[in-house]
Simulated scan of single mutants.
Amino acid sequence: MKFTKFFTILFASILLTLTLAACGEKDNASDNKSKTESKVVNVYTARHYEADEEVFKNFTEETGIQVNVVKGEAEELIERLKREGESTEADLFITVDGGVLANAKAKGILQSVNSDVIEANVPENLRDADNQWIGMATRARIIAYSKDRVTPDQLSTYEDLTSDNWKGKVLARSSTNLYNQSLLASFIELNGEEQAEQWAEGIVKNFARQPDGGDRDQAKAIAAGTGDVAIMNTYYVGLMLNSQDPEEVKVAEGLGVFFPNQDTNGTHVNISGIGLTKHAKHPNNATKLIEYITSVPAQEFLSAGNYEFPVNQEAAKPELLQSWGDFKMQDLDFETLGKHNKKAIEIFNKTGWK
């Protein structure tokens, strides 16, 4: 019995020693991983803005964490993440448009982010319900108008642009443009397919010319007298007003910014977002970068550099955005933009919006 008791105690001591050693090895491994993560975070981004690059640079200077960036088109990057699977080096995926973010989530390339800091920085309506993507900036799709030929009291809603008052005066990008697809998708969600189709048909009827070029080109067509109003994103107006090209500045100075549907369901707003990839190798660093991007200083820097609206409600907007005033935005789930994208394209094709 004495020998049995002795060996029992000896066995327990050995087991305890091995357990403590294993815990020590695990802690050391965790520490080593943490040290590795203190050096790098890899980003796949469909946003190609200088302001973003400066934010990454500032993050590195503050934290010592190097940000490596791979740029591409959103769908291309989503497919790349699916193809790479567990072998991917990407820790974060950044893109524009709520529909694209919803698609990334549906494709299973993202995972939830758990951070009290992020939840404090970004309101619930600008985050995915499962925190698989976090808003980093918003832009409004407004009616830009010629200050020489149009007064604000002549404008009211997106729907009014289909009236005879605007026949031969409306400018817009192609129906292949994601911004227009999401705008129409929002109308499908808010008003139903029939009314959305009537709107698209009415805009086509009132085109000043066939859709051509980007938002800047719509602004230039207003300046040239081709049309009087254009459906544009607000941040393009800011970029043109602060361009190094004097002609772009002159064009933008002749534009007024009008936020439609203030007495109905609000102005269409789209979002840029950032998500933690499913197989991120540096999740801690990636979370730190999201926390930084959504912080007040970084939000104010992004807004001042790219003229988008900050998602952090504590961040001050630059003077230009303040001069446009506050506005009511559409109240809808950004995921619906992806849900109705296919139908929006069908409607565009049916109504002849090229």
Rank of each mutant, 00 (worst) to 15 (best):
L332Q: 10
E346L: 08
E248M: 08
Y145W: 04
G275W: 08
E314V: 08
N165A: 15
T45G: 04
S323P: 08
V100N: 03
I142Q: 02
Y235K: 12
N177E: 11
Y236F: 15
R139C: 12
G192M: 02
D148R: 13
E25K: 13
A224I: 07
Q244W: 07
K71T: 13
A22W: 13
E291N: 10
L171G: 01
Q195Y: 11
D116E: 14
K343G: 05
A280H: 02
F93A: 00
N165K: 12
A286E: 05
E84V: 10
A144G: 15
L18S: 14
L10K: 00
V150L: 00
S182K: 09
E300C: 11
A129E: 13
L161G: 01
Y236M: 10
E89L: 06
R141C: 11
S87N: 14
V296W: 06
D153M: 04
A230F: 03
D128Q: 07
K26N: 13
D52P: 00
L126N: 06
T63R: 01
D153H: 09
Q195L: 10
I290T: 06
Y44I: 06
Q154W: 05
V117H: 08
K328C: 02
E37Y: 07
N306P: 02
A344T: 08
I134G: 08
Q262T: 11
K281Q: 12
F348W: 04
T4W: 12
T277G: 01
Q66Y: 08
L171W: 02
I290C: 05
S295H: 03
T176A: 10
P310T: 07
E119R: 15
S175Q: 09
A219S: 10
R173L: 03
E346F: 07
G168V: 01
E346I: 09
S115P: 10
S182C: 10
E50I: 12
K33D: 09
N242F: 13
Q132L: 00
V43E: 05
F334D: 01
A196V: 03
F309D: 09
R216N: 12
N114S: 15
E84S: 12
N58P: 01
D160Q: 14
R139L: 08
Q313K: 15
T336K: 14
T151M: 05
S146K: 05
E62H: 06
K354N: 13
R83N: 15
D331S: 11
A21V: 13
V113L: 11
P123Q: 06
L241R: 15
G238S: 09
E76W: 09
E73F: 13
A344D: 04
Y235H: 15
Y179W: 10
Q322H: 05
L276R: 02
R141H: 15
K205W: 04
S175I: 00
A106Y: 03
E37W: 11
S323Y: 11
A74I: 02
N114P: 00
T176M: 06
N261I: 01
F6W: 08
I94A: 11
L15P: 06
G108K: 08
A252Q: 00
D263M: 08
F56I: 03
T45N: 03
N32F: 10
